[in-house]
């Protein structure tokens, strides 16, 4: 599955529009707290929000800082709060999000500069669930076979690109950074329900702790925010049931 993009309407894709952006900015060297700055740029309706940010950085204010790498919804670098919702700036078109944009850094992680946040707590939580295949036995001179049904069991959670849209949309995570967060649980789910994996017990033990799955209060913000369309809350619930019933 590709990254989800809303369907474009009947807007002329080449039409030039005046896009008004209000961006929450913070420069740790001069600012004591974040402030808002306004910009106006000309963009095509088919441009992405990232195009508008590039336009500002390259032609208006070179100090504007944000992360981006592939710019096509695969690397997961450019998650930000666009008009109050976590989105990837590179896959949302001006024709979909409108010409009046309010852009902020994602919440719950320390802001380093402008739209760049410190992702380290997020990655530390990701690493804490042992997000790799644990298979101690020797399969011999062959592959570790898996049926199509077994592969389909965790297909949804293989789509994660670690953009942090889900984790930083979670009200529980904003209030309590100790919670491992939806993204870490999604990536644990990917291995917990993998028939070849042998680390299930260890991962369920980790997620059964105070900072684990039980912090989830089913607000569904993560599911709404995921740019890959992963049913995040459903994955968390499956892990909760796996712990409760002690079976996967």
């Amino acid at each position: 599955m590709t990254t989800t993009i809303a369907k474009t309407g009947s807007v002329d894709a080449m039409e030039l529009l005046t896009v008004h952006l209000r961006i929450k900015r913070y420069n740790p060297e001069v600012d004591t707290k974040p402030h808002w700055e306004e910009f106006e740029v000309q963009q095509k309706a088919s441009d992405t929000v990232l195009n508008a940010l590039h336009n500002i950085k390259w032609t208006v204010d070179g100090t504007l800082s944000f992360r981006r790498s592939c710019a096509h919804g695969v690397c997961g670098s450019d998650a930000m709060v666009i008009n109050g919702e976590n989105k990837l700036s590179c896959v949302n078109l001006i024709s979909d999000v409108g010409t009046d944009l309010v852009i902020e850094p994602i919440r719950g992680l320390p802001v380093i500069k402008d739209l760049i946040v410190d992702m380290e707590p997020f990655f530390a939580q990701y690493r804490s669930v042992i997000p790799y295949l644990i298979a101690e036995d020797d399969p011999g001179y062959k592959e570790r076979y898996q049926s199509q049904e077994d592969r389909a069991r965790y297909d949804d959670t293989t789509k994660c690109i670690l953009c942090a849209c889900c984790t930083t949309s979670c009200p529980v995570y904003w209030a309590n950074g100790e919670y491992v967060g939806p993204a870490a649980i999604v990536n644990a789910h990917r291995f917990i329900f993998d028939s070849r994996d042998q680390g299930t017990e260890r991962r369920l033990d980790i997620l059964n702790q105070k900072s684990g799955v039980w912090r989830c209060r089913t607000s569904f913000n993560c599911t709404e925010a995921c740019p890959r369309g992963i049913k995040v809350t459903q994955a968390i619930e499956e892990v909760k049931r796996a712990i409760l019933y002690d079976r996967v």
């Binding site: 309010v102 599911t223 709404e224």
Partner: peptide
Amino acid sequence: MSPSSTMYKGKTGQWAF
């Protein structure tokens, strides 16, 4: 002027919570 903090626009699930 923009508000210093904005509301996260979650859907029904957020408001239920």
